[in-house]
Each structure stands twice: as structure tokens, then as C-alpha cells.
């Protein structure tokens, strides 16, 4: 179960991620996108989900990532991500509830470049009982 102190907490991204053209091209190629001048709209999930996993699986937070299901997902894109972006990802556990033993939480991830917000995303994650 999630440690109650974690709810509402923002975890500041420790390690900025540099987006390469290879990252964008591989993602675009997988989905058949030929325009690789910018990242596809869902590309930021590669950064935000990896960071959420690292944060939420930490012993002091206590989420069981192995029983996790992705419930829903939302993106707000201020501008497209491009190669060379150095993105810092801050994650906040915005909500948490337990229904019939299933833990349901919403994690907001803010990706910023040089202090300017590039994309926000919200992931609802369900840990099955």
C-alpha cells in the first residue's frame, strides 16, 4: 500500500533527460509516423512513466509496480518536444483512493525545459488487489 505521506507530495526530477533524434525517430517509426521533426504527441510518456516507476516503487512510497494497470492518460502539450530538449520531470501524486482493495492514484508529471513548462500529463494508475 502507498505510504499516506506520499499523497500530495511533489517529487522533483533529479536527473534531466536529454531527448535525442534517435529517441524521437525510434518512437515515430514504431507507430508509422514519418514526420520526425518533432516528437509524437504521446512521446513524453517514455520519460514520465519511467520516472513515476522510480518514484512510486521507492520503499518510502511503497507502491507495488508489478500489479499495476494503466487506467487512463491525459496530455496537455504547450509545445512539441524536439531533439536536443533537456527535460526535467517533476511528479506529483495528486490523488489516491482505495476501492475494494484496489489502489487508484493519479500522478501528474510536468516536463520543463530551462524552467519553462513543455508538457503536463496525468496518469491514473491502478494497483490491483
Amino acid at each position: 500500500m502507498l505510504h499516506p505521506d506520499s499523497v500530495g507530495r511533489t517529487f522533483l526530477g533529479a536527473n534531466p533527460v536529454t531527448v535525442t533524434q534517435e529517441d524521437i525517430s525510434a518512437f515515430a517509426l514504431a507507430i508509422g509516423e514519418e514526420d520526425v521533426s518533432v516528437a509524437p504527441p504521446t512521446f513524453s510518456i517514455c520519460i514520465s512513466l519511467a520516472q513515476s516507476q522510480a518514484i512510486l516503487s521507492a520503499p518510502e512510497v511503497g507502491l507495488d509496480w508489478t500489479r499495476l494497470v494503466h487506467g487512463d492518460q491525459r496530455f496537455e502539450l504547450r509545445r512539441p518536444i524536439v531533439a536536443g530538449d533537456v527535460l526535467n520531470c517533476d511528479s506529483t501524486i495528486e490523488s489516491y483512493k482505495v476501492i475494494a482493495g484496489n489502489e487508484i492514484l493519479t500522478v501528474r508529471s510536468d516536463l520543463a525545459s530551462k524552467g519553462k513548462l513543455v508538457a503536463s500529463s496525468w496518469s491514473t494508475l491502478v494497483v490491483r488487489a
Binding site: 518533432v38 509524437p40 504521446t42 487506467g71 487512463d72
Partner: peptide, 13 residues
Amino acid sequence: GGPANVKEFSARF
């Protein structure tokens, strides 16, 4: 008209 033109996108699985 291209991936840069998507501003918001959401779905439930």
C-alpha cells in the same frame, strides 16, 4: 496536419 498540431489528448483504457 502533423504531430505538432496536437495540443491535448486523453483516453481511458
